[in-house]
Every structure is written in structure tokens, then in C-alpha cells.
Design a protein around this nucleic acid. Structure first.
Lengths: 363, 363
DNA sequence: CCGTATTTGTTCGTATGTATT
DNA sequence: CAATACATACGAACAAATACG
């Protein structure tokens, strides 16, 4: 004699197997099922609860009970684990992002495996291999060398066919249409540059990272701000560098520019706070004062910005929020609470914090 | 807010992970559990039911509820994975340690799951639970509130019986004899203080964290240096703080001490670089100059040390090396390349980097 | 072997909380 | 804001399996 809840369970399972309900179609409310089988709500919940644990259906408080996606079932996946691929672990931005990810995930049952690529495409490949081998439920990835063609695109396409959700942080591979969390870097470059122009600066050095999209976009904003305010762009004042370049290269180029345009250059827009502080540091040794002689704008609004005696004017990066949102989004994706069509990528709007590293241009 | 049945569930799970119940041992009847947690039978059954589905226990009608055999629990997953439990992810020291761990592990087939406790014992418990539930091969842990008795010791003892190796970073629980990687904090406190004394300072404020062993040991070194050089120790000049305390508390105490001993205090030894820079920052606002008016010594030799216009004299912490060595040691332990008897804990010897934040005492 | 107490399994009822529409 | 649907929680009763004198 089968018990009632087992009968209910078997019957609902057969609906699914017969295709009477399709994936993501509503099964019926608990009340419906109570009436259909003439049992109590508790019995229905016992049956439904079992089916959920076994992966046949999923429940959503306030909405209803739905047929699960069968293609996802029966995978011997590792228990609630998310892979995180960063470029640099130690970079100040990313440790904030990781903290955001961690603080959200710690409120769920998910944990994460952390890897870093050191912005190296070979290593990114190795990271993806290792992570996928562990059957993670999803991946959060900060693209490596996003400005350059990435030969690992196939991995990501393959994840899509295998229903492994992934989100991109900070940048995105243009070939992929994955959900992403980025900031409007172009606008960030724009407002930082505009701030300098409005202070009367006209000869502004821009320092940008050339091998990731963030750098390219910030540069575009830098250029647009010049155009918008009718300030001529001097190509020689744009300094590009790559991940592998030593910092001294930047120092040498700046000193070279200062020697050539000695009394002209009055401001610098730096790709990030670390470079900005590096510059302020060697300016100190050269007896160039910030902001009296040169104004400097950073990017990221890291805690470095307030560490020195000169407090950096900087563009705010939503570090922690970005990590939190990414974790939340990926968990929603895993648990089917977001449909493919709804995938709303987030673009954070930049803001500028004005501190003491910028001042009116000398006349 | 966790629901009751989840609390019951988590607690019973932790009994198993701590080894309070052995495989096939009876957990207790539903009635027992009802009394222990003061909940209804329904709630108990919900918790127990979940745990059964997840394979932690098995039930036998008429007999009771028993602990499942952990060794049989779906060993399939967690392929070559190490759990890492930190206190703070974002803290500058730990991101270097993590980088060290990552850079060694990336040369092997191991990966790591990262969690943080925020120096909170409850959260440490949760971290260990989650990590052990994923059948990791080993654990690297930075002890939480190491100066205070830690109720999670059972977990570590149970790991030993289950042959899960673990190493401790930065501090160790005195009750455990696990391999550990620490620095000689006492000596670090000693050389920093000695440096100040040799510069002629006699009234030195010492700021120490009270709830971890590193702080306690650094303070011991601070005291020993005074004794060794026949400088009287003024108890009122030692400032203790806890993880939860706001930084303003330190600021207020320092200002208070300065007002009371106005022309006496000439130096400060700070628990770490972050606090040291915080102090230098508010000194700047008060027009107290470092090192002319006060010398400041930090600890950790983080990159913060060179960020400001005043470069911090600081005790070197082997951050990255420590992470690397820990990763190497734990992999050796997993693969049996180290025998129990050989387990050589490492104690790093501190060194002092003298920069511009310290100078001869005013006379 | 029987009977009783114990322990888990099934089922119903009821109330309140929380998320979604 | 109200209605709907799932989530949590307490209580009660009876059934079925087991243990033990």
C-alpha cells in the first residue's frame, strides 16, 4: 500500500515525464493539488518537497511551483560551488570585489573557488579547465586582456550549451552576450577630464592601460571631454602602457613630457589610483607640488586615495557593490530565477570625488 | 534570520563534523531533539528529513536516527581542493598571503575555496562546516580571535582523526599541535621598540590588538625591550583595542595621552601599518609632525608604508612567502611527503625597515 | 511468543510570516 | 494595498517497525 504522498509524488513525476508540463511551466498551486488528489496541504508539501530535492521541480515563494529544466538534471555537480576568475588577486580593486562576492555568498549555501590569471591568456585557459573539471555551478569572470582578441571564447560558448551560467565583471568580450557588470568607463574618463578642463587645465597628460577595455574606454572619455569643451587634443600627451611594462616606463615618459613642454602641462589623468600615487610620489622627489604645480586625478576611489597627505580626486568604482551584485545575479541564474530574456546587465554610473589633488590651473 | 529548522539542521550537522557523534551512532530520538532545541516535532522532522536527503544521517523506523558513515558520503566531488579560512579578505596582509597561496597552487593541480570569518567565532564555525561539507583535501586556516578560548577546537581535533591535514597561519590555537607558519611576533615587537629606544625615546605609546595572539605577543616584545634597556614601562601608555572597536577610539585615547603628557610622548609603536598611517593622518590635521615631533613605527611593511610622504619604518612581515610556504606544506602533507614527526612549523624572524617616520628623540 | 513501550512514518488541522503580482 | 502562493511552525492522532522484559 503506497502512502498518499508517494502517490501524489509519482503522479506529478509522470506528468513531467509524459511532457504534460514543460520546463518552467507552472505545475499548479498547492491548493490545486490538494483538490486534485483530495489530500491535505501537508501531504502535498511532502510530495512537492521530495520532488524539489530530487530536482524535478522548483518552488518560488509568492509565484508558484514550476517544472524544472530536465536538461539540467542528474548532473553530479559539486555541491553549490561557484568559480571566480580574476586577473589580479592582490590588486586593491579586486580584493574589494571579492569581499563583496564573499559577503553575499556567505549568506547563501554557496562557496567559491578563486583563481587568477595575472592577465595572461594562457593562464586563463588553465583556470577555466581546472574550474570546469570541478563541476562548478557557475562562473564569475573578470576578462583577461579584454581589449585583445581572446582565443578562449570557445570555452564560454561551450558553457552556454552546457547550461553553466557565467557573468563578466569590469569588462566583457564583445563576441559574447553574457550578462555583465561593468561601469561606464567612458563616462568615467569623461567626467574626470571635464573636471580638469573646468578648472582651467588645457594641457593634460592621460595615462591609460592599453590591453584592457577599461583603459581603452577611459581614454575615449578623455578624448570626448576635450572635444566637448573645445580643448585641442595633443596626441603626444597620451601615454599607453601594458600589463607587462615596468612602472619606470611611465615615470620616464612623464618626465620626458615635462621637459619638453616645461611650463605647459598642468594636469594628469591617471588610469588608476595606484599609478596616480606613484606619480605624486616621484613628483615629491622632483619638488613638483600637487596640486599647486600639477593637478592629478585618479580612478577607482580606493582607500589609497586618502592615505597620503594629498588626498586624491578620483572616480568612484563600485567595487564592493559590484561583487555583491555579481554574486546575487549568478545565484539567481543558477536557481533559475532569471530567464535568458531578462538578463539585465548592470552598468554603473561613475561619480567623481573631488579631494585635494586637483586645483585651478596656473595662469 | 535563520529559521528554526535550519538552525536545528546546522547544529546537528556540526555535531557530525565535530565528531561528537560517530558513524552509526544514534543521534537521539525525535523527542530528545524536540527538547534540546525546544521546537515542535514537525520542525525536528523537517530538519532531520533534509539531513537524510543530503546524506548526513539515516533513519530507521522503530529504532532511531543514526549518523551516516561519512567515509561513504559522495566522495566524488572536490577534486584536489583545499579550503582556506582567513579572518579578513580585504586586509592588505591577507591579500598578499592569498596571492602566495594561489601562486604556488597554480603550479599544482590543486585549487582553493576561500572564506573569511571577519574574526568572528560564529562565522568561523560556519566556514568550517561549509568547507568540510565539500570534502576538501586539507585546510589552511588563520585562527580567529586566537588570544581567546576558541570553542571550535573540536572541529580541528576531528579533522585529525579523519586524516584531513591542516596548517595554521599567523597564529595558533595553543591547544592544538598542528604545523603552523608564524612569525616571531614577540621579537618583532622587541626590535621595533628597541629601535625607538636607541633613538633616545623613553615615553612610547604602544597600540595593540587585544583579541589575537599577534597583538599580545607584540606587546610582550614591547615590554621586554623596555626592560632590556632599563626604560621604565608606563602602563597607561599601552592602548588595547578589539576587532569591533571603532578607530576613533584609538584616536581619542592618543589625543588624551598627548594632552596629559604633553611634552613627554615622543614615539608610537603601532600594531600595524594601517593604524600607523591612520595616526599620521590625524596628526597632520593637528599639526603634529612625523618624525620631528613624534616618531611612528608600523608593522607588516605593507605597500602602505611607502604611499605617504612620510615613509613608514616598519617590521617586515613575510606575507607572500608565508602563503607560498603554507601552500607547499599543505600539499606535501596531503601527498604524504611529510611525516607527522617531521612536521616542521616555520617561525619567520622579523626584520625592521627603517624609513623616514622615525628620528632621534627631541631633547 | 506476547504485550507494551519506544521510535519513526503518515496524515490532518490551524495559524502566521513573507515574497510576488 | 489587497490577493495570492509558498514558507515556517505548532499541535494532535494514528500507523508501523523495533526493542525488551
Amino acid at each position: 500500500m503506497k502512502s498518499k504522498y508517494v502517490m501524489v509524488k509519482d503522479e506529478i513525476k509522470s506528468w513531467i515525464l509524459q511532457g504534460k508540463v514543460s520546463p518552467h511551466e507552472k505545475i499548479g498551486t498547492e491548493n490545486d493539488i490538494m483538490e486534485i488528489f483530495d489530500v491535505s496541504r501537508h501531504t502535498v508539501r511532502q510530495a512537492i518537497g521530495d520532488l524539489e530535492k530530487e530536482g524535478w521541480i522548483y518552488r518560488w515563494q509568492g509565484k508558484g511551483t514550476f517544472c524544472a529544466d530536465q536538461s539540467k538534471r542528474s548532473k553530479s555537480h559539486s555541491y553549490k560551488t561557484i568559480g571566480v576568475i580574476t586577473t589580479y588577486i592582490s590588486e586593491y580593486i579586486f580584493s574589494s570585489i571579492i569581499r563583496g562576492i564573499e559577503s553575499y555568498l556567505s549568506s547563501t549555501d554557496y562557496m567559491f573557488i578563486l583563481t587568477s590569471t595575472n592577465n595572461n591568456i594562457e593562464k586563463e585557459k588553465k583556470c577555466i579547465d581546472s574550474i570546469l573539471a570541478r563541476n562548478v555551478d557557475a562562473i564569475i569572470v573578470e576578462p583577461t586582456k579584454s581589449a585583445i582578441y581572446n582565443p578562449n571564447i570557445n570555452y564560454y560558448l561551450n558553457m552556454e550549451t552546457n547550461n553553466i551560467p557565467y557573468v563578466m565583471l569590469n569588462a566583457l568580450y564583445p563576441q559574447l552576450q553574457a550578462p555583465s557588470l561593468t561601469m561606464d568607463e567612458e563616462q568615467g574618463g569623461y567626467i574626470a577630464t571635464e573636471h580638469l578642463i573646468q578648472l582651467g587645465h588645457k594641457k593634460i597628460i592621460g595615462i591609460f592601460k592599453a590591453d584592457d577595455l577599461q583603459g581603452v574606454n577611459r581614454m575615449n572619455g578623455f578624448i570626448r571631454a576635450h572635444r566637448a569643451h573645445n580643448v585641442p587634443i595633443i596626441p603626444g600627451l597620451i601615454i599607453s602602457y601594458n600589463t607587462e611594462d615596468p612602472r619606470e616606463k611611465i615615470q620616464n615618459e612623464i618626465i620626458h613630457l615635462f621637459n619638453n613642454h616645461k611650463y605647459d602641462i598642468t594636469a594628469i589623468f591617471s588610469y588608476n589610483d595606484a599609478i596616480a600615487l606613484y606619480i605624486i610620489n616621484f613628483f615629491r622627489e622632483l619638488n613638483i607640488n600637487v596640486p599647486e604645480d600639477v593637478s592629478v586625478v585618479g580612478y577607482d576611489d580606493s582607500y589609497l586615495a586618502e592615505m597620503s597627505e594629498v588626498k586624491l580626486t578620483s572616480v568612484i568604482h563600485p567595487k564592493r557593490t559590484m561583487g555583491l551584485d555579481a554574486a546575487k545575479l549568478i545565484v539567481d541564474l543558477i536557481e533559475g530565477k532569471q530567464q535568458g530574456s531578462q538578463l539585465q546587465s548592470v552598468i554603473y554610473k561613475p561619480e567623481l570625488v573631488v579631494r585635494t589633488s586637483t586645483a585651478t590651473a596656473k595662469t
